[in-house]
Amino acid sequence: MDRDRYRINTPQVLHEQFDDDVVLVNLENGNYYSLNASGSAILRLLANGLSPDSIEKQSSAAHAAAGSCVRALLAELLSEGLITPCDASEHIEVKEETTVAGLDLSTPPALQRFTDMQDLLLLDPIHDVDDRGWPSAINDGQHG
């Protein structure tokens, strides 16, 4: 494993980039997230193949707190299962246009987590199957 390169944890994590935000949905636990402009920029750099060290080194001259910003966000994204370390076998090519130029960390990265949809992912009822192979009817009320 190359522990210094990361990718968005697809397919269980969905993401959509907007001008200043990213919306992420974790299908595993039903949580969804909003990432502010600086966080979105860092996530884009990570997803484009830059290592956290590279981001930190390239941006520390302009932003003294770059290292702590990047590491804190990285830990949070990993903890929420939104990104995952790249496998050693994955070919990682940093896209040419990927640069920290313009990275504005004057507002620290902020990941907002929303948990109010978790109940849509209730565990499926425990079931047995009949002799034809179909689940036995259980009159529960968990859906809707």
Binding site: L14, E16, F18, D20, D21, V22, V23, V25, L27, G30, Y32, S34, F114, M117, L120, L121
Partner: peptide, 17 residues
């Protein structure tokens, strides 16, 4: 409001159901 807000309001409840 922003497009991101609207997507956060419509997408999770659509997709998770």
């Amino acid at each position: 409001g922003s497009a991101a807000e609207a997507v956060a309001a419509i997408a999770p409840s659509t997709i998770l159901q």
